[in-house]
Design a protein around this nucleic acid. Structure first.
Length: 1019
RNA sequence: GGCCAGGUGGCGAAAUAGGCAGACGCACGGGACUUAAAAUCCCGGGCCCCUAAAGGGGCGUACGGGUUCGAUUCCCGUCCUGGCUACCA
């Protein structure tokens, strides 16, 4: 009976941990002696509780963090290790549309399944801290944080020192502290509509809504403030997905289709909430430096932010210089090269205008040093100047092009990317550096949303411009050469000049007085000259766009915002926030969950009681009916875990100071950019507003590698048809699967569960010379490993694994497969292997022929022999070091070696075994507890001290040293471990084989590495 | 197209600072135990060649070069696989 019985053991100890609340973390910040314990906050990326339950990818990261936590507790740390649910999201709502089941009900069922499965695996979570983003008590505070963001504007020039003692420039400040420009205070509503981008050059008055202002001014101030909040409403074109009934963020669209479901997406202008994450772009990029994240993730985040430095430059349009020059601030006689053959910009008294003057094209470029190579310009089709610059001759063509490109989905734009398209507007602009006429085109390779929506095109030094110029026969002028000596291509060159486009740095040519300057010098000098002339300035741009923060679905957080209505019931554009006390804003009751079929949000179908109210001042209000995206809840859950029952605050500041930052955060690389960027952004806003004490939430981040399905053997449909009889005769089941590009027939073994994955086993396949055949046939098979997915029918369900082998075996296998961060294929045989290891550990100490769990007679309570002691201490050192560097696979190998050695021992020291069980505990806690108990202990070993090793026991007396002749191993000698180079050489020369090899040769050199190797270099 | 990660036995992998390539496990082969099987235990093993055997030799970490007494590890080039990103001026 007492064979290793995982099922019995695991059920028993899980019950024990639950009853004794073994893993509960004190809810108060420790004081006195307890405060001396180091804290450790270890976090898993919480899962979306899908209807299909856990798959074996989930427990990979969860096991890793569990090992770290159990180890840390034994090392005497105060550990916080919580789990929760990222539970808002589309699938539950889609299910509701089909069945009428309320999403909350579906969500709760799914959570119950996930929780059962996680508990089944014996993870040491403090379940008293469980939370779901869908709990009203949780999203109450999500809404509260939104209101903080809504109440904040970003003061980019504000210099301050945070609670972390670091001086920064730029701070999110209360909206009430936003300086209001004089013109707003003076002229009220009319000018407020014009004011746009925080023009604070004029002297302004601090804030706000002093009571003795006129209603008109008050309204102007409010509108001005609304434009500067970090959460604001925008009317820009967005990605509307009819199939999903919601808009999507750019990040949620892959190749022009929705990331989820692959539905088509169209662009249309809609009023949407945006979060001004771009304000924090610089800090999000630069403050990555301090974090213990992999370089590749930091790199991806920096790429996503995409900061670039360049210059903005104004080009007068020809029409402007022709008929409206008098209106310009930069008078025409100050044009830049003004008859000066060597070029040069004349300083100008007037500064570079904040907004470009009418009939001026402002461009953004990272290569102002190529200004002399501009041969055309491009406006985005949506650019406001297109209408005025287009000549009558070109108007029809331009209109047609704009119409076509507005119809293009993003997908079309991508597909057509190879072929550049565009239309000449008929208009010209004047290059400020040399007064040349430059034709102005429109083309959709220029995006309205980046930079200024207009570019100066330099085909000689930009790939895209080069492609375009080639397609339309536009002049190409080289202005940068590899070296000053290189023969340069003067003048305009048609066709395909050699060596162009040249996009690297070099030396200026054909650039007037700037000739000979290096790219870097030229850039800084021309930028200075442009600035002095009032024609340009240094500018920074980001690829990062503001975060589209609203969705049109039911199952997301409602916004705590009301819109004011006029007497006709029409929105005035003015907003009011819900009071903090009134939160949460709960979901309304719905009769059905069908999308409206239009961009009108689901919540617009709510009852009037939910939708409307009249405020105390008599103003009629309508609720915001958009909902927040799924990202919202995951932006701050790590904070709430520290204090999940607090009803006064989203987190107690003392607890925040104690637990934050998260010391180790493990999750999938698919969240490398978005979730981590969004969460860091929210954290920084909370930091600026004084709600958290540190600028970054996640100190160390590790991404586990994906687990792929087992090798799946398949044939093409044609091959299958030809051999159908043979294959089916072998009892193999053909499964037709669609891959990206073709249809294949996967060959599977039968099983009870039609969805369960039973690939061909190794002995059903013969492999020779890199080719695989179905055993006993000449049918060639293709073997490959794929992502686990429902459509591939290769998902491994942890329930099945636990049923057959137990949780400890599953945990061990997940870690034994290979390095945590690496992509690895699942092999059911491997589970079998670690299961056998657990059986060996069991038999090491338990008499498996006895009736009950009693120690084997080989276990003796006497002083341990030296060799057992020695391997124990080696194992302690190896396992400890391996856990410290998250190398769990090798730690398990070392424990296997220990077990293999001990199995061969007639008598086994009880104290040695006890120490070993402590090492095993973080990996396979159930069997460890059971054996610990069998060894005579009555307590859980959760808080037993982690074993330490005696370095003296690691030192061997003698070592085997390889002897090389010319780098090839010819002999091995046994020498005292502390032998120096000379005695090593002497011992080697005394060796018979070495002598034979040295015979008749001249030793030119001897390389001796004491303790490691000896090498004779001979001729 | 760009960037990042990777390529080691039949398979998953190891080699932590340039020093014995393949630890540990799977699969496989042989043996023990058993009436038999399962389970368990023991032994074997990169590939090729010479030898009756003991033993010996050569090749080998994707491929081609380089640095070095010595390279899986460092450098240059090529190929392949996976991930991310796709006109960001």
């Amino acid at each position: 009976m007492p064979r290793y019985d995982a099922k019995r053991i695991e059920a028993h100890w899980q019950q024990y941990w639950e009853t004794n609340q073994t893993f509960r973390t004190e809810d108060t910040v420790p004081t006195g002696d307890a405060a001396k314990k180091p804290k450790l906050y270890v976090l898993d990326m919480f899962p979306y509780p899908s209807g299909s339950g856990l798959h074996v990818g989930h427990p990979e990261g969860y096991t890793a963090t569990d090992i770290v936590c159990r180890y840390a507790r034994m090392k005497g740390k105060n550990v916080l290790h919580p789990m929760g649910w990222d539970a808002f999201g589309l699938p539950a709502e889609e299910h509701a549309v089909k069945t009428g089941t309320h999403p909350r009900e579906t969500t709760e069922q799914n959570i119950a399944t996930f929780k059962r499965q996680l508990k089944m695996l014996g993870f040491s979570y403090d379940w008293t801290r469980e939370l779901a983003t869908t709990d009203p008590d949780y999203y109450r505070w999500t809404q509260w944080i939104f209101l903080q963001i809504f109440d904040t504007w970003y003061d980019a020039d504000f210099v301050w020192t945070g609670p972390d003692g670091v001086e920064r420039k730029g701070k999110g400040r209360p909206i009430a502290e936003l300086p209001i420009p004089e013109e707003i205070l003076a002229s009220g509503r009319a000018s407020a509509l014009r004011a746009d981008s925080g023009d604070t050059t004029e002297e302004n008055t601090h804030g706000g809504l002093t009571p003795n202002r006129s209603p008109e001014v008050m309204e102007a101030i409010r509108r001005y403030q609304d434009k500067h909040r970090l959460a604001y409403v925008s009317d820009a074109p967005v990605n509307w997905c009819p199939a999903l009934g919601t808009v999507l963020a750019n990040e949620e669209i892959i190749d022009g289709k929705s990331e989820r479901g692959g539905h088509p997406v169209v662009r249309m202008p809609l009023k949407q909430w945006m979060l001004r994450i771009t304000a924090y772009a610089d800090r999000l990029a630069s403050e990555l430096d301090e974090l213990d994240w992999s370089d590749s993730i930091k790199f991806m985040q920096r790429n996503w932010i995409g900061r670039s430095t360049g210059a903005e430059v104004d080009f007068r349009t020809e029409s402007a210089s022709g008929r409206a020059s008098a209106l310009r601030e930069n008078a025409p006689d100050e044009k830049l090269n003004a008859g000066n053959a060597h070029g040069g910009l004349t300083p100008n008294r007037s500064p570079f205008p904040k907004e470009p003057n009418a009939n001026t094209i402002r461009v953004y470029t990272t290569r102002p040093d190529t200004l002399f190579g501009v041969t055309y310009m491009v406006l985005a089709p949506e650019h406001p100047l297109v209408a005025t610059i287009t000549t009558d001759d070109q108007r029809a063509a331009v209109h047609e092009y704009i119409r076509k490109s507005s119809l293009k989905s993003d997908l079309d734009r991508t597909d057509l990317a190879k072929e550049k398209t565009g239309v000449f507007t008929g208009g010209y602009a004047i290059n400020p550096v040399n007064d040349e006429r430059v034709p102005v085109w429109i083309a959709d390779y220029v995006l309205i949303s980046y930079g200024t929506g207009a570019i100066m095109a330099v085909p000689a030094h930009d790939e895209r411009d080069y492609e375009f110029a080639k397609a339309f026969g536009i002049a190409i002028t080289q202005v940068v050469a590899k070296s000053p000596k290189e023969p340069t291509r003067q003048g305009n060159i048609f066709g395909m000049p050699e060596g162009l486009p040249f996009t690297e740095d070099g030396v200026a040519v054909n650039s007037g007085k700037y000739d000979g300057l290096t790219t870097a010098d030229f850039k800084s000098q021309i930028t200075n000259d442009l600035t002095a002339a009032g024609l340009g300035k240094v500018a920074v741009n980001y690829r990062l766009r503001d975060w589209l923060f609203s969705r049109q679905r039911y199952w997301g957080e409602p916004f705590p915002i009301w819109h004011e209505l006029d007497s006709e019931g029409q929105p005035t554009g003015l907003m009011r926030a819900d009071s903090v006390e009134s939160l949460p804003v709960l979901h309304p009751h719905m009769d059905d969950f069908k999308p409206t079929g239009t961009p009108e949000p689901m919540l617009a179908k709510a009852t009037p009681e939910w939708l409307f109210k009249t405020d105390t001042d008599g103003v009629k209000l309508k609720r915001e009916t958009n909902s927040m995206p799924q990202w919202a809840g995951s932006c701050w859950y790590y904070l709430r875990f520290c204090d999940n029952k607090n009803s006064d605050k989203f987190i107690d500041p003392a607890k925040e100071r104690y637990w934050l930052p998260v010391d180790l955060y493990i999750g999938g690389a698919e969240h490398a950019v978005l979730h981590l960027l969004y969460a860091r952004f929210w954290h920084k806003v909370l930091f600026d507003r004084g709600h958290v004490s540190r600028p970054e939430p996640f100190q160390k981040l590790v991404n586990q590698g994906m687990i792929l399905g087992d090798t799946d053997y398949s044939v093409s449909p044609e091959v299958f048809d030809r051999h159908r009889a043979v294959i089916e005769g072998m009892g193999i089941i053909p499964l037709v699967l669609k891959t990206d590009d073709a249809e294949i027939v996967a060959l599977r073994n039968p099983s009870d569960d039609p969805d369960a994955y039973r690939p061909l086993t190794e002995d059903q396949v013969t492999k020779e010379k890199g080719k695989a055949h179905l055993k006993g046939t000449d049918i060639e098979l293709t073997g490959r490993t794929d992502k686990m997915s429902k459509s591939r029918k290769n998902v491994v369900n942890p329930d099945h694994v636990v049923k057959d082998y137990g949780a400890d075996a599953l945990r061990l296998y997940e870690m034994f497969m290979g390095p945590l961060e690496q992509v690895k294929p699942w092999q059911m045989n491997g589970v079998e292997g670690v299961y056998r290891f657990l059986g060996r550990v069991w038999r090491l100490m338990i008499d498996d022929r006895a009736e009950s769990v009693i120690l084997s007679s080989a276990v003796v309570d006497t002083a341990p022999p030296q060799d057992q002691l020695r391997i124990l201490h080696k194992t302690i050192k190896a396992v400890t070091d391996d856990i410290d560097r998250l190398a769990f696979n090798t730690a398990i190998s070392r424990m296997m070696e220990f077990t293999n050695f001990m199995s061969g021992q007639e008598t086994r020291s009880k104290s040695v075994l006890e120490q070993f069980i402590l090492l095993l505990c973080p990996f396979a806690p159930h069997i460890a507890e059971e054996l610990w108990h069998a060894l005579g202990h009555s307590n859980t070993l959760t808080y037993e001290p982690w074993p330490s090793y005696d370095p003296a026991l690691l030192v061997e007396d003698t070592v085997e040293v390889p002897v090389q002749i010319n780098g090839k191993v010819r002999a091995k000698i046994i020498v005292p471990a502390n032998s120096d180079a000379a005695s090593l050489e002497a011992a080697a020369r005394a060796d018979e084989t070495v002598q034979k090899n040295l015979e008749g040769k001249l030793v030119v050199k001897v390389v001796a590495v004491p303790g490691r190797l000896l090498n004779f270099v001979v001729k």
